[in-house]
Simulated assay, not measured.
Amino acid sequence: MPPTGGINQFPHINGQRPKVTGKFVVIESAEADRSLVETSAFLIEKTVESYCGEVTSIKKNKKRQNFRSNKVAASAENLKKLEKLGELKVRVFEHKTLNTCRVVVPCWEAINDPEEEIATKLKSQGMIGVKRIMRKTNGKLEKTSLLELTIDSPNAPTTIKIAYINVPTRPYYPRPRRCFKCLKYGHIAAGCPSEQLCWRCGEKSHDEGKCDRPEKCINCRSEQHASTSNKCPVWQNETATIKIQVDNKITFEEARKMANANRATNYADTLKKALNKTFKRN
Score class of each variant (00 low, 15 high):
residue 176 P to G: 08
residue 121 K to T: 09
residue 2 P to C: 08
residue 263 R to K: 13
residue 142 E to W: 11
residue 18 P to K: 10
residue 120 T to C: 12
residue 5 G to V: 04
residue 15 G to L: 07
residue 254 E to I: 02
residue 235 W to Y: 14
residue 280 K to G: 09
residue 194 S to K: 07
residue 60 K to H: 05
residue 138 N to W: 11
residue 1 M to Y: 02
residue 241 T to G: 08
residue 179 C to F: 00
residue 86 G to W: 09
residue 30 A to S: 12
residue 120 T to S: 14
residue 120 T to E: 15
residue 172 Y to F: 11
residue 48 V to F: 03
residue 46 K to W: 13
residue 84 K to Q: 09
residue 253 E to W: 09
residue 74 A to C: 08
residue 276 N to C: 13
residue 215 E to G: 07
residue 137 T to G: 08
residue 8 N to L: 15
residue 204 K to L: 02
residue 129 G to S: 05
residue 58 I to G: 00
residue 7 I to M: 11
residue 66 N to K: 13
residue 167 V to M: 02
residue 166 N to C: 11
residue 238 E to L: 06
residue 170 R to W: 06
residue 91 R to G: 11
residue 192 C to Y: 06
residue 187 H to W: 15
residue 43 L to K: 15
residue 245 Q to D: 01
residue 49 E to L: 03
residue 78 N to C: 15
residue 98 L to S: 03
residue 53 G to W: 00
residue 82 L to F: 11
residue 145 S to T: 13
residue 189 A to N: 06
residue 201 C to E: 03
residue 146 L to D: 01
residue 158 T to I: 06
residue 61 N to M: 10
residue 193 P to K: 12
residue 242 I to K: 04
residue 17 R to A: 14
residue 151 I to Q: 00
residue 248 N to C: 05
residue 161 K to Y: 01
residue 35 S to M: 13
residue 156 A to L: 07
residue 112 N to R: 11
residue 215 E to P: 03
residue 235 W to Q: 04
residue 221 R to F: 10
residue 204 K to V: 03
residue 116 E to P: 00
residue 258 M to N: 07
residue 138 N to C: 12
residue 277 K to T: 07
residue 79 L to D: 00
residue 87 E to Y: 10
residue 251 T to Q: 00
residue 242 I to R: 04
residue 35 S to T: 15
residue 200 R to Q: 14
